[in-house]
Amino acid sequence: MKKNDLKSMGKSFTKYILIIGALLILLDFTFHRHEYFSFAEIYGFPAFFGFVSFVFIVMLGKWLRKFLMRKEDYYDQ
């Protein structure tokens, strides 16, 4: 039971976040969302932008490890 604490928390968290996400997208269809730039008014644009940005940041960061990552004692050598 103890080992599953974090897993079950993670599962229920995922469930709720997905529900909230779905609601937010549905809500977008119920009214016209005014934005400063017209292309940002497309349905679900911020959601799409958020998802893609996040994945991009993590993936590029991961790739940058090749160039930027050194051993922990790099500066002590």
Binding site: I17, I20, P46, G50, E72, Y75
Partner: peptide, 30 residues
């Protein structure tokens, strides 16, 4: 709504990356 969409879907992206083991693991490094 705009801000919540951005944030919630960024969290979903995180869950997605962790689920498929794409999120970079913690490594002792400089």
């Amino acid at each position: 709504i705009s801000q919540l969409q951005l944030l919630v879907f960024a969290i979903i992206a995180f869950l997605f990356l962790v689920k498929f083991k794409l999120y970079p693991s913690e490594i002792r490094s400089t």
